[in-house]
Structure formats: C-alpha cells, structure tokens
Simulated assay, not measured.
Amino acid sequence: MASPTAAPALRAEHLTKHFGRTHAVEDLTLEVAAGEVFGFLGPNGAGKSTTIRVLLGLLRPTAGTAWVFDAPAADVERAHRYLAHVPADVALWPSFTGQECLDLLAGVGPGTDLVYRAELVERFGLDPGKRARAYSTGNRQKVALVAAFATRAPLLVLDEPTSGLDPLMEREFRRCIAEATGRGQTVFLSSHQLAEVEAVCTRVGILRAGRLVEVAGLAELRRLRRSEVAVELARPQPALDALAGLPGVADVRWTSPLELTLALTGPPGPVLRALGDADVVRLDVREPSLEEIFLDYYGQAAA
C-alpha cells in the first residue's frame, strides 16, 4: 500500500497526556518523514509506550493533536489503514494457532504479502501450528513481527519489538527493517536497546520524563558530544600544553610524559595542525556511542 499523501508519516503537535497528577507525556512536538527509520529512545518509564498509544489514537490526549499521514490519530479506523503496530507486550488469542493468529491479523490490516509472510515464518523459526497459549514470550513476539513485516502498511510502529528475541532473531529483525525501508515503508522504532537503534535508525528522538529533549540524526548527535583523543609521543613535547587553548578542546591530561588525552568538540583540524610538528607515534580518536550520548542526557537529569 503506497503512502496516501506526501504528508509526514507521523506528526504530533504539543501532544500531552496526564493521568491525574502523573504527566506521562508533556508538550511533545514531533515529525517523522515518510520512508525514514526513526528511533524513539528512553528508559522504562520515560513515556515511550504512552506516547505511542496516543499517537495511534489508542489513548485520548489531554492536549495536542497527532496525525498518521493525512489522517487524524483520533480517527482510528482511518489512521490504522496506513499502519501496522507491534506492541511492547504481545497478547494473542490463546486458543488460536499461530497460523490462525496470522490470518486474523492479515484480515484486519492494510494488506499482506502472503508469500513474504511464509518466508518470514521460516526465517524467524516460528511453528505456526502451535496454539498461542503454548508460545513463549519470544514466539508471541515473532507472530506479531511476522504479521507486521508481511503487511504492506506504509508505516510500521514497533514498540520494544525485540525484547523477547535471541541474538540470531535480532539479526533477522534488522534484516527485515532494511527490507521494509527498501520498499519505502516508514519505521517508528521505540526501544531502550541502544545498539539496535544505532544499527538501523537514521534519526532518533530522546524522551526524558515525558519530554522530548533531542531529535537529531545519529551523526549530528555524536557531533554534539565530545570525542576522546589519545596521543602517544616518541619524545616529550612541552609545547603541546598549548592544546588546552585551542577551540573545542577541553580536559587535556598528561597520563605520562609521552601520553596525553583530551576531549574534543567539533572538527579536529586545529588539534591535528598542532600535532603536525610533534613526533606522534599513535593517535586515536574515539567517537561516543549512542549509549554514551543517551546516558549523558540522563546523567544531566540526575545532576
């Protein structure tokens, strides 16, 4: 099913959800472009699942508005023609077999590629003849993932989709994400598994205590954080003390007469030029991982 319009796949304006005195989502404004893989990050309790339920019209917002393509999220019947959703806690019909669950899900969605679905059943190692009540958490997750990836919905909304999967199945999941984006589908992936998000997403949003604190591409996020530079010299270079005065350089530390480290924000050109006349044996530049960036946000929150 093609995207219905050139509108963003998901859009929220000042979305807010309160449960009494609990502010689960607060003034969230977000736009996810059609065709992108967007990562929605935050620890348990940050408000990710509540945000998704409001975006999908499954909860009524306290304030604000959301759209799925050109459909208001509140118009659930219309909006859900454009999407497939894998919830954080998958519940199936216990007396149905896996195959019957897949057939039922295909009947209520925006269309399913049955040949591709059969292939996914094999790839995920799912036994479709078992009753759902006999499935483990991971196998229930597989049913939901197979149903979602086999659909031709222009938007896939995946909430903690690999929480019950082993590493081999996580690799298969990433392959399915690549295939979905190759078909032009949009993926909205909510997760606290940072390596997973880093592997598949083009942009991420970080949610903290119900508030969206950052939306950026992965490369842009890394540039916002300092890189660590380690230098090993063949002989002492006292002149390198001047590195501390260069733009973007902080925390210059000599760990020995021949080794120093520094934190660098921004382009490395000034540092490299300063090191040009030194007898450098080794130079390592380490970019922060998405996990370090993420923990930095929460470290600031705790400070």
Rank of each mutant, 00 (worst) to 15 (best):
F38K: 03
L168I: 09
A278M: 07
A234P: 02
R222A: 15
E122C: 02
L145Q: 00
H85G: 00
A195M: 11
A66T: 00
A230S: 14
V249W: 13
E170Y: 02
V157A: 04
E77Q: 11
R286H: 09
L262A: 00
Y297Q: 13
A12H: 06
D284C: 04
T162L: 02
T265I: 02
R235Q: 14
D103I: 02
V25W: 02
Y297M: 07
D70F: 05
R133H: 11
A34H: 13
T151G: 15
V213A: 15
E170L: 14
G184F: 13
T255E: 13
D159C: 03
V157D: 00
R211K: 14
G299C: 06
A63P: 01
A6G: 14
L126A: 07
V213Q: 14
S136E: 14
L295M: 15
A34S: 13
R174S: 05
Y82S: 09
L58R: 00
R81Y: 09
L295K: 12
V229N: 07
L158P: 00
H18F: 14
E259R: 15
R152D: 14
A244I: 05
S3Q: 10
G182H: 06
V115R: 15
N44G: 13
D241P: 01
A153G: 04
T265M: 10
F40Q: 07
V121Q: 07
P72E: 02
P61S: 07
A147M: 12
L92V: 04
H192C: 09
A34G: 12
L158H: 00
S227W: 04
R78H: 08
A73P: 00
A63I: 02
L145T: 00
D70L: 05
E100S: 10
E172M: 06
G47A: 01
E292W: 10
R203I: 06
E228S: 13
R53W: 05
G20W: 07
W67T: 06
S95C: 01
A33P: 03
V54H: 08
H23A: 03
R140C: 08
Q185V: 08
P87M: 09
T22R: 01
D70N: 13
V280C: 01
V213E: 13
K142D: 13
Q99S: 09
A278R: 13
L165P: 04
A234R: 15
W93S: 05
V285H: 03
L221P: 03
L59Q: 12
A106L: 07
A63D: 05
G109A: 14
R235P: 02
L165C: 04
G266H: 13
V68D: 10
L260T: 05
A301G: 13
P161S: 08
V249C: 11
T255D: 03
G35R: 08
T22V: 15
V285S: 11
G182N: 04
L30N: 08
P72M: 05
V76E: 04
P267R: 13
A144Q: 08
Y297S: 06
D251W: 08
L275A: 02
L155S: 10
P238T: 06
